[in-house]
Nucleic acid binder design. Structure first.
Lengths: 242, 242
DNA sequence: TTGACTTATATGTCTAGACATATAATCGTA
DNA sequence: TACGATTATATGTCTAGACATATAAGTCAA
């Protein structure tokens, strides 16, 4: 026989405390601004030490569900900054995840001294060299996106000799320059004649534009503009809380 | 005189430990997959108790920077799901934050039994009543976005009598239905004649589309479609880490 | 070689205290 | 009444232990 008492497989105490409080907040039983019981009250209620309830409350605070104020207590935070997690996958991963065949084609690659426009786009001041890459991604041989990218060689010297005719620069960078920060700007344009031809859509058709500017520890790495046919591509962002 | 030794205002010990490790990860000194020193090693290095280093490591694990495995140790996580935080503010807040004057205009409001199309859009099966709202937001008297919304009255009965002629439904919902989950879909279209007229742009001009579907504890609340002139609006998403 | 069993070990959780510190509340004074 | 000093208190951090538990690694037999 097993040694199990009827305690069964209940989670650890601090997790139970955390879940209890979280449930009350999420159901609205404790609305924003509500003061959560003091630690010493929870200690009494759950019959445990203060460190245990402290751990539960600290995690809730780290998750921005509550706010802790010395001497005052802990309070349910009000619906904060409305934000969402936007998944922006590597294009190749995105396409293969859909079960479609990924295709890649290098349109152009140029190594040059940074022009004024390049420097502005990358947000760097000093003169230096850059690699400019233009390429196209396709799914099942249908154009999926065109990419227009600039890489700062001062930050990523090895990009000068990388072979981008086989591997897309995005994937290459992902493997060579981890841990970056980025800013995305999403907008819409209509296809000009060149874009229309590359994406095989009509001139004037809507396109979704993602401009991504990537850096690492205040060091510019790359700036990229991705153009997707607007009616065939969807960016999905899921958002929880607040 | 003050009692301060030259220790000055250094942060607490566990925060220093956490920052030390975080720095090594972010600079690449400890690449993905690298094994972080064992807790007992960090205890020796920092001369503190295990609970203190445990707190530092737990927070790093909660932030998804490291992965902890029993008996094996703690490891730097590799660049995970490429995701970004996308700020999607309440439109009124967004406009006033820009220092512009917010304007709102109710175009139409209808209370009706849910049609088949309504039910599909809201993802509900049972018949019920809905409120359909169409309205326009403007900044400095220039059209900023058109909104087309459906509210499920089964979830938000008070929406039946709310006065949406003064307050935008988004703001009203934000104050009456906190803590929701949502899914956003972003795409691009070109303006049809009606949209063009409402937004005061040319027919065929690009528009950014945000479809937002909101629920709470598996209960549908509202589905909304926002149309922005594509060349004047920008969605900015910032992304940090891996 | 493979599978089953044992063992060592790093993390996971918890305790019963301690002192530090920010600050809400109170009290005293101008 | 308004302002400054004092006090009470809830959280913040930390310790030196303890036992639990998952699991990598080693052991041994089929």
């Amino acid at each position: 026989m097993s040694l199990a008492t009827d305690a069964a497989d209940k989670p650890t105490l601090y997790k139970r405390i955390r879940a209890d409080i979280e449930r009350r907040i999420l159901t609205g039983e404790w609305p924003p601004g509500h003061r959560i019981p003091f630690e010493h009250e929870l200690v009494a209620r759950y019959g445990c030490s203060r460190m245990t309830v402290n751990k539960a409350l600290s995690e809730l605070a780290q998750a921005d569900l509550i706010e802790r104020r010395r001497r005052a207590g802990s309070f349910v935070r009000r619906p904060q900054h409305q934000s969402a997690v936007l998944k922006i996958a590597d294009i190749r991963a995105e396409i293969t995840a859909l079960g479609r065949t990924y295709g890649y084609e290098l349109i152009g690659r140029k190594l040059r001294a940074a022009t004024a426009a390049d420097r502005e786009r990358l947000g760097v001041k000093k003169a230096g060299k850059v690699v400019a890459i233009s390429c196209r991604h396709s799914a099942d041989n249908v154009p999926f996106a065109v990419e227009d990218r600039l890489i700062d060689l001062a930050s990523v010297p090895s990009a000068a000799t990388a072979d981008f005719s086989r591997e897309p620069p995005g994937s290459w960078l992902l493997h060579h320059v981890p841990w970056t920060e980025a800013e995305h700007t999403i907008s819409a344009i209509v296809a000009d004649d060149r874009t229309a031809e590359t994406l095989d859509i009509a001139i004037g058709a809507p396109c979704l534009v993602i401009d991504r500017y990537t850096w690492r520890s205040a060091r510019t790495i790359t700036a990229v503009r991705l153009l997707y046919p607007g009616d065939s591509h969807r960016l999905v962002a899921r958002f929880k809380g607040g």
